[in-house]
């Protein structure tokens, strides 16, 4: 795979929050405005690119058995750096994001890309991967934050965009709104993929339906087999 492909795969094919469903905790928690989503995404880009780069550099000297601990230490150092930078230059944003800035350490994307990509590939490819994934994450969060802010507050990046007399649908900026929006976005992305596959004449990628994982079906199934 070329560097370009490493970069672009994070933008749609392996879009972290919406295709891989990684890093959902900040995706759901901080996206009550477009500003917060963008800010969070920026912090993740910073950490992800640098952690991918450093891990790729030292991948040959890290013993296999303690690699996870090493990855976490590297990510944690970078997160502390980004936290201090935010406190110094973007304090209001830091206050808005709160605990979710330190929590970037345990964000699945950071460790996931380190383990799955940076530990196996060269520096240039790892940086491209981190940049693509981070950019995809940022765009996803900004998109989700925009929808929630526009519907739930009537503003976009703090500016009023809805008509006079608009009653904000404030459930959207509260916790349930995050889940509703995420569900609808996932459904929309599946729809676009199926539609694209049909247009190009390919068999649409089967939607994974784990029917056996549902308790009610599973127990009824067992009953049927016994009886």
């Amino acid at each position: 795979m070329s560097v370009m492909q490493d970069f672009t795969k994070g933008l749609w094919k392996e879009l972290p929050p919406f295709r891989l469903l990684l890093g959902l905790c900040p995706t759901l928690a901080v996206t009550n405005s477009a500003d917060n989503g963008l800010g969070m995404g920026m912090a993740v880009i910073f950490v992800l690119v640098l952690s991918n780069m450093i891990i790729s550099m030292v991948r040959t000297i890290i013993p296999k058995k303690v690699r996870i601990a090493c990855f976490i230490v590297i990510a944690a150092s970078l997160v502390v750096a980004v936290e201090l930078l935010m406190q110094a230059y973007a304090y209001p944003l830091y206050q808005q994001l709160g605990i979710f800035v330190p929590l970037i350490v345990v964000n699945c994307i950071i460790l996931g890309r380190a383990e799955a990509f940076a530990a196996k590939n060269g520096i240039a490819a790892s940086v491209a991967d981190g940049l693509g994934m981070g950019l995809g994450f940022t765009l996803s969060l900004t998109f989700l934050g925009s929808i929630r802010e526009i519907l739930g507050n009537g503003t976009w990046f703090g500016k009023s965009v809805m008509w006079e007399g608009f009653e904000p649908l404030s459930i959207m900026v509260q916790a349930p709104g995050a889940f509703i929006c995420l569900g609808l976005i996932l459904a929309g992305m599946n729809m676009i993929n199926i539609w694209q596959a049909q247009r190009t004449g390919h068999e649409p990628e089967a939607l994974k339906q784990g029917c056996g994982s549902c308790q009610a079906c599973a127990s009824a199934d067992t009953q049927c087999r016994q009886g």
């Binding site: 549902c214 308790q215 009610a216 127990s219 009824a220 009953q223 049927c224 009886g227």
Partner: peptide, 14 residues
């Protein structure tokens, strides 16, 4: 409801 349905379930007609 899914949990309550697990109380002594029976197939339809059983």
């Amino acid at each position: 409801t899914p949990f309550l349905d697990m109380i002594r379930p029976k197939p339809f007609g059983g």
